[in-house]
Design a protein around this nucleic acid. Structure first.
Lengths: 241, 241
DNA sequence: GACGCCCTTCTTGCATACCAGAGGGATGAT
DNA sequence: ATCATCCCTCTGGTATGCAAGAAGGGCGTC
């Protein structure tokens, strides 16, 4: 028996109500957090060799709130490794060393290959088909290497979608976080050495493995693809440091 | 030429000074964070079906600091998924659902198998030997299943050491976090169905694969071992929810 | 001129006061 | 007795003030 409610109330197949969570009222703390995170991720911190600093007071003035919610947002960002508060000195926007970037990419490879495994085991054909659709616009006459910006978008969406389709919220959260950290790096590497073309070949191979439900193959290809990026950064990532 | 300094200054092989970072002065924020995190992890939140709540004011009084550093610590813990602030209602200590625990264990399996891969590729024999030493106290006459508490310690240390030896700080940090979350669960499962004995067999197989530098084997065994725990929770983890 | 000290300034850390909203209990009507 | 309403209380959210410490510049000394 369906209850005629207009609120976000859910019902499971048994007819018992399951969850009716409301959106957690947005508070200044969370708004500041979101604004700062986006600003930091979009910031070009690697162009200058010296560190970038934030100023609590300045931020609170610019955002029109007091220092308290700003400080709480900073504390959260610090927990995620984006900034580091240096007591009485300021808030430093952290740069990742080459080593750190490589480690993050390796972790990412691990998580994403697990996602591929889970998909091969449990996802529906329709969900897997979504992945293929992402690249159907590219072919011999519309090559990734000639439309880098467009391909880069599809690329990012592929990786995000892959993890999302796995159905694991945990994998999604952890990889999203990692992705935020290595975001800037990817954009540097994708345009080099015709990596775009090889990237698409790899992706298609992953999709094919998923389509034939080849658990080990999908996992391995996914892992090797991302580890390849790690090796590339190892070789050519001297811009960092 | 060595510079006679007593401070933590390091020198690399070229003779140029490299890093001289000081410990970041402990602040109330970090102390409260550490205290709360430990308290929450050691807390028995699954014994009662209703949620556990924290009280900012009470915490600040008990810890002898003002609400400000407490709130900052809470913000950090919330970021890590240990608590959730419900505006004007209180701070809820989050319980993990069975689904969430399984997802975390799967992520852990992914990361730890990557650690195993890295070890097989790069670690020294001496480091791998450290892993074997952890279990040398157990044998036919001193069986894991008869000394569960002792074995449980060795077990935990094995997993921690494995990731540490991989040399990846990123892997270590992410897995530590996950470990904190599933800590309570492991203690419930280890004593059942003679899982301890099978656990040690698995561990030894992983170590042997590492010793013969069998990258794929070490990775696969490590992954399967932890995914086994995930399957066990899937089957018998109805205590959660 | 070079060096060292001190003081000013500017930063974050912490404490406190006040505010809005949620919950529960008392109170009143039915 | 039951139910609805109102108000009081208690919660976290935010703003603000003060203090401690770091940095840099000016000044005095050698």
């Amino acid at each position: 028996m369906k209850t005629p409610l207009r609120w976000p109330v859910d019902e499971d197949s048994d007819g018992t109500l399951v969850l009716e969570r409301f959106a957690p009222e947005q508070t200044y703390k969370t708004k500041v957090y979101a604004a700062l995170k986006q600003a930091i991720v979009n910031m070009d911190i690697y162009s200058s060799p010296d560190p970038a600093w934030l100023d609590e007071r300045q931020l609170s003035e610019r955002l029109g709130v007091s220092r308290t919610p700003v400080r709480e947002a900073i504390a959260m960002l610090e927990q995620e490794g984006f900034v580091k508060s240096m007591p009485r000195r300021g808030i430093m926007v952290l740069k990742k060393s080459k080593r750190e970037v490589i480690e993050m990419i390796q972790a990412w490879a691990a998580l994403e290959s697990m996602a591929a495994r889970l998909i091969a085991e449990h996802a529906s054909d329709a969900e897997i088909a979504r992945l293929r659709k992402l690249f159907q616009g590219f072919n011999e006459s519309h090559r990734p290497s000639d439309y880098l910006s467009e391909y880069s978008d599809a690329n990012i969406r592929f990786h995000q979608t892959l993890v999302k389709i796995s159905g694991s919220v945990a994998l999604l959260e952890i990889t999203s976080n990692i992705f935020m950290h290595v975001r800037g790096i990817r954009q540097i590497t994708i345009g080099r050495d015709d990596r775009a073309t090889r990237s698409m070949d790899d992706h298609l191979a992953i999709i094919e493995a998923l389509e034939r439900r080849d658990v080990e193959g999908a996992e391995k290809r996914s892992r090797e693809h991302t580890l390849g990026l790690a090796r590339y950064v190892e070789e050519h990532g001297d811009i960092l440091d």
